[in-house]
């Protein structure tokens, strides 16, 4: 979250805007690059990343979703 659209790769097909379960994107008109209008409502489900025919969408995971982890070597000490 939020999705980031690579402006150079996007062909404005609108797939991401159509399939996002959270309606995060808005597309003003056909063939226009959608805007990420409600990025903070992204559920990081990855649908836009998976379905973009040009692989133009990626997710930027917020800093605070940090997936806390440690070196597993500590379990063996």
């Amino acid at each position: 979250m939020p999705p980031v659209i690579n402006q150079d790769l996007c062909i404005g097909c609108g797939t991401c805007a159509d399939i996002c379960p959270m309606n995060v994107f808005e597309q003003e008109a056909p063939k226009m690059v959608p805007t990420v209008a409600y990025g903070e409502e992204c559920w990081h489900c990855n649908a836009c990343v998976l379905d973009c025919p040009k692989k133009a969408v990626s997710l930027r995971i917020p800093l605070n979703y940090m997936l806390l982890h440690v070196d597993a070597a500590q379990f063996k000490e």
């Binding site: 990081h44 489900c45 990855n46 990343v49 998976l50 990626s58 997710l59 995971i61 979703y65 997936l67």
Partner: peptide
Amino acid sequence: GLGALLDY
């Protein structure tokens, strides 16, 4: 459907 988690 954990693709976003794997990518991260």
